[in-house]
Design a protein around this nucleic acid. Structure first.
Lengths: 149, 149
DNA sequence: ACTATTTTTGTCGTGTACGATATAATCTTA
DNA sequence: TAAGATTATATCGTACACGACAAAAATAGT
């Protein structure tokens, strides 16, 4: 039963590390009054300006049942806006407010802080990223549900 | 602002992959009537037979505010037991029931399923595990709170 | 045109995570 | 040995995740 030992598992350190990262981000993001998942929504919007709820979900691998409440919180904070499409009334476009755009400057140093906090070499970080992207691509091909595509 | 692009981040694929793994486990663990975090508790108990709540928490990097309700659910399912220590009444020992022990056999094939589902080579899996363990060790040294030690 | 299906977003219930706080038992130390 | 600090566990409130389902708009097929 060796493969049932915690130390022999890949999934567990992955799960623990992911939570650890949220914890490392927390004090930095607290200054911007947001959580890590909220920060991820801001990231894609800083890059793409205007996206539908579904497009954001596809980029973050999140369904609307998670995304909608999360977006509503960012709207309450006046960082983003909702606009229903005129051509297709089902579609909701999300875009940044002025306040939201201005946050980007304050946030620009955050990713570097995390890398430093991890104490990993640039090489190790790069390798991890490549492997993680590969894992994610493989797994999402098989396990990312159609309902979300 | 390149380091603010989603594609350039390490943390995001880590977060997404961790969730993806829970999703891959879900149909397999459903047959054992448990969730992934509940499975992790079972893993450490299959290995160590009898542990305090705090010892389980230290191994899984989980505080009692997460662990207690999770443990209570496994007790409801009759997989584990609580026993208060006689020498120190604050301490609660957790151990397996017969039914809990018997689950180990049914669970023994699960980790392999996950590796297969990931479509990664054994080498890549090994490298990921080494790097993840390293990241976790570094990060936990700095961010795992004293209250949990 | 009209019904059935699909698409897009949203709501609801359950189960983690985790900070803040509570509570009871033990230990410290004056 | 009694007050104060510490330790182990538990409770509470907030915020994700996600399966199941709902609702409204658009599209397809007849």
């Amino acid at each position: 039963m060796d493969h049932l030992k915690l130390d022999n598992q890949l999934c567990f350190p992955l799960y623990a590390t992911s939570r650890m990262i949220t914890r490392i981000y927390q004090p930095l993001l607290e200054k911007l009054d947001m959580t890590y998942p909220q920060f991820l929504v801001m990231l894609v919007l800083w890059e793409h300006k205007k996206l539908t709820v579904g497009q954001i979900g596809k980029k973050l691998f999140l369904n609307t049942n998670t995304l909608t409440p999360l977006i509503n919180k960012l709207i309450d904070k006046k960082y983003i806006l909702k606009n229903r499409s005129l051509e297709d009334e089902r579609i909701v476009f999300i875009s940044m407010t002025k306040a939201g755009k201005e946050l980007q400057k304050s946030a620009s140093g955050i990713p570097e802080c995390i890398v430093n906090a991890s104490g990993m070499s640039a090489d190790d970080i790069q390798t991890m990223k490549i492997l993680m992207d590969k894992f994610l691509e493989n797994a999402s091909r098989n396990y990312y549900l159609e309902s979300q595509n």
